[in-house]
Design a protein around this nucleic acid. Structure first.
Lengths: 150, 150
DNA sequence: TATTGTTATACTCTATAACTATA
DNA sequence: TATAGTTATAGAGTATAACAATA
């Protein structure tokens, strides 16, 4: 497993990751404010993230996606439903199953949420376009998609 | 405010930030497993993060650091204390004040926590040392410290 | 009278177990 | 008999308000 020079690679990785971690953590208050402004708990936000207006999701698959218990998924969907953000639809093929979809209001709120989360922190402006390009290329490699994909 | 070419800068920033955000989010399950393995709730972890073995912190300042209510800080410290991770010490100068410090056990657990959080995800190994170096340099700029600091 | 911290209390979040209705 | 989802219930997390001790 270990190769000559491996220790240096490991240290380089650790240093880069630590910087990335610290930078991301520093931007947390910004996200907390966003959620508070939109009136969402962290769970609500994760809930919206896994839903859309066209592809209905079953309660079971939502519980799995949210890594929580089925009864908790019921609770989360109840919350979103009581705010008019999602809708439970019956499934004509299997009457045990509910299909959960975003309402128009839910779609709007999800869009606001994503816009807020993806709004770059002001620190990004410290880098010039060419540097941002390099950064994006390296991060694309980490995500496993080629930079030219977008 | 807007300058010619500003739109391109903004788009470059947005693209880089989005990639960084998505990459970080992808590594979340890893952190969830770490906390579960160490038997810590997210709050416990944040609690440990703000404490050390030498500099005692008052309850008041901890509530502020954790962005929570004073009674909630009491609850969090109670939890950590019941696991033998922190200690409340009286303050000889002002007998109203408690000084909260990590125990030896708390120090060990905090170290394990930080080691886990700072352990680079395997994706980092996709980059070569020279690329990791570039990445670290750019991230250092975002954090606002010069790369040569470390 | 003001401040530090805790306790009493209530509300939200989450999981386990029991239940209903379908299959 | 098994599965999808809900309800009953209990325990943990969090905040507001009232309180005791000290300044």
């Amino acid at each position: 497993m270990a190769r000559p020079g491996d220790g240096e690679q490991t240290r380089s990785e650790a240093r880069a990751w630590r910087l990335l971690f610290d930078f991301f953590m520093r931007t947390r208050p910004q996200r907390d404010r966003l959620l508070s402004r939109l009136g969402l708990t962290p769970n609500d936000a994760r809930g919206l993230g896994g839903l859309d207006a066209t592809e209905g999701r079953t309660m079971r698959s939502l519980a799995e996606a949210w890594d929580c218990d089925a009864s908790n998924a019921t609770f989360i969907v109840d919350r979103l439903e009581s705010r008019g953000l999602v809708e439970r639809r019956p499934n004509p093929d299997d009457r045990r199953v509910r299909s959960v979809v975003l309402t128009a209001k839910g779609v709007r709120l999800k869009r606001q949420l994503l816009e807020g989360l993806y709004a770059p922190p002001e620190e990004l402006s410290r880098l010039k376009p060419a540097e941002l390009e390099v950064l994006s290329t390296l991060l694309s490699r980490l995500i496993g998609q080629d930079s030219s994909d977008r």
